[in-house]
């Protein structure tokens, strides 16, 4: 089985978010970038397939050269090779089109992505990619088993789960449940050394227009201080009369 894992390179979850150039650009100064947490679940599931059922793993990102350490980290965790599409990821549709080009030549059976990037929170790329290629697609995936060319997939729905089945090729957008937190791996020294030898191919982009563009950013307005209340009667009265939420 040939698996492609789509990796988005995002600020670490503890990052302070700031903007520059009149609030038009994200300020990456001092920000640590990581594999998008949902993609880490996807990669970990791919590793499981590799170890238990035999599979090769390619990781791909659409991004400029600064994303390479993130790809190397994925290689250190155990992916076999990496592809970087040398373009700034601005719009989800464009990213999906770039990834579709990678897939057209790759012969992949399974594409694992995350349910959203935690920077722009798009939730766009996997569904768009699947539609561009007319592959089966499952969003918010919390469980995946493969047997031969058949997949059994669990999807989170509002207030429950749906079990689906499909033939490969398949694209899923995953989240926790695909694997558990404790299954996530920290690259070890050997992995890091090996990652240096692994193939990282840079391909040039093929799309040159964006369906959407980012204009500017805004930080939430400063909040008024928390009212500390002494007892539950006062709390109930405030929630009823002041906040009007009960």
């Amino acid at each position: 089985m040939k698996i492609l894992v789509c990796i988005s390179h995002v600020p670490d979850t503890t990052s302070k978010i700031n903007f520059t150039e009149n609030d038009s650009k994200f300020d990456s100064n001092g920000v640590q970038f990581v594999i998008n947490p949902y993609d880490e679940f996807a990669l970990t599931r791919a590793m499981w397939f590799k170890e238990k059922q035999g599979a090769t793993i390619t990781v791909v990102t659409v991004g400029n050269a600064t994303t390479e350490p993130t790809l190397r980290k994925a290689l250190a965790i155990g992916a076999d090779e990496a592809i970087r599409v040398n373009a700034e990821a601005i719009d989800g549709f464009t990213v999906a089109k770039e990834l579709a080009e990678v897939l057209k030549n790759g012969g992949f059976d399974l594409v694992l992505a995350g349910k959203e990037s935690i920077d722009y929170n798009g939730g766009m790329v996997p569904g768009m990619l699947a539609t561009l290629l007319d592959y089966n697609f499952v969003n918010a995936c919390v469980g995946l088993e493969i047997e031969g060319d058949k997949a059994s997939i669990q999807r989170e729905i509002d207030g429950g789960k749906e079990i689906l089945s499909a033939n490969l090729p398949l694209i899923i957008a995953g989240q926790k449940g695909l694997v558990e937190e404790k299954d996530l791996r920290i690259p070890n020294m050997r992995g890091i050394m090996m990652a240096r030898q692994k193939k990282l191919t840079v391909v040039e982009p093929s799309v040159n227009e964006n369906a959407t563009s980012s204009v500017s950013f805004e930080k939430p307005a400063a909040k008024s201080a928390c009212k500390i209340v002494d007892n539950v009667d006062e709390l109930i009265s405030l929630l009823h009369n002041e906040a009007k939420v009960i």
Binding site: F19, T212, S213, F217
Partner: peptide, 8 residues
């Protein structure tokens, strides 16, 4: 944060 996005 929030982002102003333009759809083209």
């Amino acid at each position: 944060a929030s982002n102003f996005t333009q759809i083209n």
